[in-house]
Structures are given as structure tokens and as C-alpha cells.
Design a binder for these strands. Structure first.
Lengths: 227, 227
DNA sequence: GTCTATAGAAGGATAGAC
DNA sequence: GTCTATCCTTCTATAGAC
């Protein structure tokens, strides 16, 4: 805010946002108390209410932070590892899979988490949540456009990206509810099947389908999801 | 509980469950206060804690109630109106669509609502939520099996039902976050497209594709979601 | 800018009369 | 079984010293 702010100022603010982010992710917004945030951040109430007008204001900062984190946290790690534009999509989905596994199926998509909890009751948060979704959709649609040559002509990449987000969010929800990765893997398998068909119908068949195919498939008997 | 319970006993208990159900649906579990439930039900704290050990215990009763309501509330109204087994699936999806529209996109699937809010923090609730999902999946899979003749041989109906649930839950979440029916309609359109292809690949092509096709499509330019 | 202390409201749950 | 009254905790937010 002030023009010559010290380092520590930004540090404290950042620490609050980051701590709140982690707690909201793990327990949700309402279930996370301000006291808990302060304790974990090693700060006191005075600091929080110096930077933020309210707990909800802190939530908005967290959601803004997520918009900034889309690139560095969700996209870049995948894009560095994978160059094929279709496989990059599955790499992104694999990121959420890893998150589910690492947290024993307690955490999936941070935004989806907050979306259902707050959409009805917190209009300001709902707006930034929607912006996060839109950012994700646009990034994925851009990625898909790089594979446009291999995909059927006339395919709407924006619609396909929305479809991917819808499926991913639903799959994360079910994985958490069942405390099992199975519903998530089933959704990805369905999607893989869908893409296989898209690619075999593509106008320019020159580019061969990448071999990374079987990578992420589990050993389950899910092979019979054919069309 | 007691063997010769009066009518009013069951009435009070039911009223508590039903009132809590509506409030949990609209505002979520944590955001709904016990006092609010009591006020809306026209009862006092003594009554609630006579029948339920805690607020969470009441939640479990609500979730059990939802399991009983799957038939009468979700399936039967659709099955009475629609006889074609494939169209029945889309009829069920249309039910959730209607719920979104009626509530100005505030309410979608009651179970999905509670799933993300409580899966991490309330193990007992999570279990009954998963049971609700399983009930839905089984019912829809049974419905799909009636259309087995028209669908490709070897298609796994249980997997397909899971796919439908995943997509529906994701679509409801996005519709709520965007306060718009568009993401929901887009998901259903994608699904319709998917089924069209399934049906045209079916082993027994004798049964003609029902004409109800264009019914639920909005006037949006979503026709280009082809494959 | 950060601290301690605390206000003030709302939360879930209980006690005991009827 | 239902009522009223209330306990105790937790919550967000504020006041004022440093």
C-alpha cells in the first residue's frame, strides 16, 4: 500500500495469505478460525486486522493468490515435463490426482473446494472463484489449440476445456467422498478414451498418437470402457 | 424408539429432519445454526436434543433421509413422464437443471453440496454421502441396462453411470459458481453428443433414436460440439 | 506494525420445571 | 416430550499500549 513499504510488511501479509490458503484448503473457510490462522502463522490478531478488514477480506486475497498461482503451480511444472499438447492436458489432470494421493484423498482442487461452500453465501468470493475457473479454462483451451491440427476440424476448444474442468471437479468431489482414487481414475480413463477417438478422427492424421498413453492408467479392469 | 410412540413423536422428529434438510441445502451444514433450525421448525432446543444427540447426529438423519428420497424425488417423477430408458437418464439430469433454475443457481445437488463441505472433517457424514452416491449410480446403471440392446456391446453400465454422476456434479458446481445455467447445459450437450455416438454404434440398430433430442438444448451456439 | 487483552455476538449443548 | 433459561465455548473483531 504505502510506497516505500519494508520487506517485513510484505512478508507478514504474505504469510497470512499463505497460511490461510493452506488452512482453507484443508478444512474449508468456515471451519477455519481466525485464531488458528494466527497461531500457525505465528502472528497476532492486530497484524491480521491491520492488513485485512475482515476474515472474508483475507479470503478474497487468498482467491486472488490462486489466480496468480495457476501458472507457476498448475501449468508450468507440467509444461516443463511434457511437450505434447494433448498429453499436457492429461498432465494437468495428473497434478490433481497427485494432490488427492498425497493428502489421502482429503484435498483435491482448492477452488472447487471453496466453490460449493461459498457460492451461495459469499457473493464477492463467488465472483473470484468464477474468475479462477475462467483462468483455468482459458489456459487449457490455449493448450488444446496447439493440438488443433490433430483434432477434428470445427471442434470448439473452449467447450472442450469447460468439459475437462467439469469432469475434473466432479471427479475430485467423488474421490474425496469415497476416499478413493478410483472415481478419479475412471473419469480420466473415460476422457482418455474420448481423446483417442477425437485423435483418430482428426483431419491431419500425420502426427502419430504419443505413446505416453498407458502411463497414468491404473491396473484396474477398466479396459472395457470402449465405444 | 419407544414401541408405542404417538403420532406427534414421529411428526416432531420428521419436522426437524425436513427443516434441517432444507436449511443444509440452502446454506450448507456449518453455516446453518441450530437456533435457525428450531425457529423455522417452530420447536425448541429440548425437542431437538431429545431426538438427536447432536447437530451432527441430525445431519446423519438428513443424509439417511436423502437415501430414501432418491426414488420418490429423483427417479419416479422422471420415470412416470418418460418411458425411453436413455431419455430417462437425460430426464434425471434435467431434474437437477430445474433445481438450479428454480433457485437462481443457488442449489444444485444436495449431496454434492455437503460432500465437499464435510468429506474431510466429518467422517460419519462422509460415509453416508458416499452411500448416497452409490445409490444414485446403481439406480442409473440399472436404467441404462434397460437400453443395453441399443448400446454398444461390452459397454460397462456401472462405469457409464459413474461418468454421468461425475459430470453432473461438476456441472452443478460450475453452474453455481458462475450463477449461470450455461456450464450445466454445455455438459449435458456434450453428453448428448456422446450418447448419440454410442447409439449409432449400437449392435441392434433396430430401435430408432427418440426424437426428444432437441428438447433440452438451449438456443446457444453450442451446435459445434461435434466429433 | 505488532502486541495483549477483551469486547460482544453467536455457536452448540444442558438442566430442570412442567 | 416439550418448554424456558442458561451455561460454556468459540468466533470475529476492536481498543489501546508499545
Amino acid at each position: 500500500m504505502c510506497h516505500f513499504s519494508r520487506n517485513t510488511t510484505q512478508d507478514t501479509r504474505d504469510r497470512l495469505i499463505e497460511t490461510a490458503r493452506q488452512l482453507f484448503l484443508k478444512k474449508g473457510y468456515t471451519a477455519t478460525g481466525v485464531a488458528e490462522i494466527l497461531q500457525k502463522a505465528g502472528l497476532n490478531a492486530g497484524s491480521l486486522y491491520h492488513f485485512f478488514a475482515s476474515k472474508e477480506d483475507l479470503l478474497l486475497a487468498v482467491l486472488e493468490r490462486y489466480k496468480e498461482l495457476l501458472g507457476p503451480l498448475v501449468l508450468q511444472p507440467v509444461y516443463e515435463r511434457i511437450s505434447d499438447s494433448v498429453e499436457r492436458v492429461f498432465g494437468i489432470l495428473d497434478g490433481y490426482r497427485g494432490m488427492l494421493l498425497e493428502t489421502d484423498h482429503e484435498q483435491g482442487c482448492p477452488i472447487g473446494n471453496l466453490a460449493l461452500e461459498l457460492s451461495t453465501t459469499h457473493p464477492a468470493a463467488r465472483k473470484v472463484i468464477a474468475e479462477n475457473f475462467t483462468g483455468w479454462r482459458n489456459a487449457v483451451a490455449d493448450g488444446l489449440r496447439e493440438a488443433a491440427g490433430r483434432l477434428p476440424a470445427g471442434l470448439d476448444m473452449d467447450q472442450l476445456a469447460l468439459f475437462l474442468l467439469t469432469l475434473m471437479e466432479g471427479a475430485v468431489m467423488l474421490a474425496r467422498a469415497y476416499r478413493s482414487i478410483e472415481p478419479y481414475d475412471a473419469a480420466v480413463a473415460q476422457l482418455r478414451d474420448y481423446f483417442d477417438r477425437l485423435l483418430s478422427n482428426g483431419t491431419s492424421r500425420s502426427t502419430p498418437r504419443p505413446a505416453a498413453r498407458a502411463n497414468r492408467q491404473k491396473k484396474r479392469g477398466r479396459r472395457n470402457v470402449r465405444v
